[in-house]
Amino acid sequence: MPLKISSWFAPAKRACLICGRDSAQVTASIPIKHPEARQAITSLCGSCRQSIPWIAHPVCRICGRAERCEDCIRRQTRYYSISRCAVRYDDRMKDWLALYKYRGNEGVESILTAMLAFAYERLCEAAAHSEFHAITSVPLAPERLQDRGFNQAERLALRLSGWYGVEYRPMLSRLRHTEKQSLKTRRSRVVDMRGNFSAATSELFSNVASPRIILIDDIYTTGSTLDECARVLKLASRSETTAEIYGLLWARS
């Protein structure tokens, strides 16, 4: 067996957090500015990194979809200002999210947050004011939370708030335990969402003239969850000021 002295000085092998293969040095560019997010993406192997379907140029100015969006045209009243999504929700991304959400591989969390950071930076570019007052997340029903052990949106929000220095505030709570969103049609989604959430009045509303709040969730499908949460938040803030709600989502289906 030949002594491979060169291997003694080689960087330690690091397994890709998603697929477990060796993440060799890849020189593909990462479209994120934040150093920690960049580092998280660097820990992916080349093929995983290249398979991320970034939404770099959203076609729909409102929801950030990569193609023409019928939902936003059809909708009469909208409670959130705009939203941005990091990636298209294709099969590969479906697997990644399942890895985190259903299988409970919390090592993937940093990767997903890094991808969300991409959307955050796009949102800052798109929003008129690039300053936000708080980050909050879509809550999970207590039973679901017990089963899963964590709220994915909250975790992503917490990490993101740490990276970008925007304060995280839990503002919403879920009142009802609904069936899984992924099993329902568009119509029933919108109807079912009504009265699902409640918002606590926070001192943010009295301190800031018109607070801009980022609301984080994992997937945007019809936008009904996001819209309902925004509605509830606006209602809670109505007495003093009117809050602006910006959606920040990991994937757009």
């Binding site: 591989n105 017990q146 899963r148 052990g149 964590f150």
Partner: peptide, 26 residues
Amino acid sequence: LRRTPCAACGQACAYCEACLTMGRSR
């Protein structure tokens, strides 16, 4: 093992990454 905050027990509790494909043991 990876230690993460857990909503089910309210503590930072460890889960096993090696046998994750067969369900999460924590």
